[in-house]
């Protein structure tokens, strides 16, 4: 099926099997292999990308569902020559080891920070009607959809914190 998806700002015309997931379209068709396949079932978060600015698991979505959508992958966040502030923070804080979950963590964190800015609640939010304070517990809960088996969790919190500021 013919589908056009704007990926990292570029319109990409695809002709995909309806079965092709957004993740496999990115990895196998567009050769954007930064988004990772850790479980293929929405249970790890390694495939997290931003669709129209919102973080989702790209493994649990079909490419054909995204005709006309704006997708941002890790390749659109920054480059080796010009790391984004969050990428630099992950490097500085050693917020990864094997690196396989890292693109998903970074994309997830970008989406998460927008959700906080939009005052979306989490299960750590005690006052549902007030302004969200991004405490460490809020940050941890909101990043729990991204498993890191190397368990760089404290370092990931530190990296995101260094970009997000103190309990924004």
């Amino acid at each position: 099926m013919k589908t056009t998806i704007t990926v990292n700002g570029q319109a990409r015309a695809l002709d995909v099997d309806p079965r092709t997931t957004l993740l496999d379209a990115l990895r196998e068709h567009l050769r954007l292999t930064g988004s990772k396949k850790g479980c293929d079932h929405g249970q790890c978060g390694a495939c997290t990308v931003l669709v129209n600015g919102v973080r989702i698991n790209s493994c649990l979505s079909l490419a054909v569902m995204h005709d006309g959508d704006q997708v941002t992958t890790i390749e659109g966040v920054g480059t080796v020559e010009k790391l984004s502030p969050l990428q630099q923070a992950f490097l500085t804080e050693d917020a990864f080891q094997c690196g396989y979950c890292t693109p998903g963590q970074i994309c997830s964190a970008l989406g998460m920070l927008q959700e906080v800015a939009d005052n979306w609640p989490s299960q750590e939010t005690a006052d549902l009607t007030g302004k969200i304070r991004l405490t460490d517990d809020e940050l941890r809960e909101r990043m729990s959809g991204n498993i890191c088996r190397c368990s760089a969790y404290p370092q990931i919190v530190a990296a995101i914190r260094s970009v997000a500021g103190d309990a924004a």
């Binding site: 929405g42 978060g45 919102v54 973080r55 989702i56 698991n57 979505s61 989406g111 959809g145």
Partner: peptide
Amino acid sequence: GGSGQLRNK
């Protein structure tokens, strides 16, 4: 329930 990513979808 789920995760932020799942709830967004």
